[in-house]
Amino acid sequence: MKKYILDLKVKINTQINHQYFLLILGSGSKLPKMLPGQFAEVRIDGSKDTFLRRPISIHFVDYPKNELWLLVQIVGKGTKQLSTYKQGDILNLILPLGNTFTIPENRHEKLLLAGGGVGIAPLLFLGSHLFEKGYKCDFLLGARSKNDLLQINEFQKYGTVFTTTEDGSDGEKGFVTHHSILQNENFDKIYTCGPTPMMKAVAEYAEGKSIYCELSLENTMACGIGACLCCVTGTTEGNLCVCTEGPVFNSTKLKW
């Protein structure tokens, strides 16, 4: 897919809570085609400490409105600076980058999209994409507590949403892999994104039941286009760039 460097304007920056914010970026012209799982490299201007771009998952694309949504967690100085962007500010992005989740051929397969924390970000775009193509999917979203469960209303537009919280304030108490749906349902495919221990647990569950499982990694990156070789992950095919060979990998391919 052709990659672009775009200046997009901040339409809305919503602070969801102290940790997360949603950036809705607008374009005066038609946005290029992007696919679920892909990401953008965002340049952070105005921070003396932030030198490199930040890779951020594509959370949702509203093509009719020419809107790109980014769901961001404040983890360091770069994302902290990004959280201060206001309506009308310009953000420079390189996109779309990376590979995509695999869309199943059979529309009747039972699909689970399991996410934790900010890892739910690419799953909304995947869910909306699957929904538009006539697939049915379930979402299993986990967080520390109710306040950290993000964008639930958006997810509900595209499928049934199940939740877990570590403190039991919403849905079932515990981690996503403890949810009863995993015991009660037989899924054909699982797509997951979230903290590494969560993805490992999901992958282990899937592999134990011989379920095809794809997960999305978020290694630190410099270039985002396969030039610097900084973001590699160990796989059965050797060290591969997460930015070009990923971020989406079949769970059985990873050595972790």
Binding site: K48, D49, T50, F51, L52, N219, T220, M221, A222, C228, L229, C230, C231, V232, T233, G234, G238, N239
Partner: peptide
């Protein structure tokens, strides 16, 4: 050459450290 294991990158003030190792 397989290069070095991840992590290979550290951002620094106005720069970066890399440890790719000639992959």
């Amino acid at each position: 050459r397989e290069g070095n294991p991840y992590p290979r990158l550290a951002e620094t003030p106005m720069g970066m450290l890399n440890a790719v190792g000639l992959q």
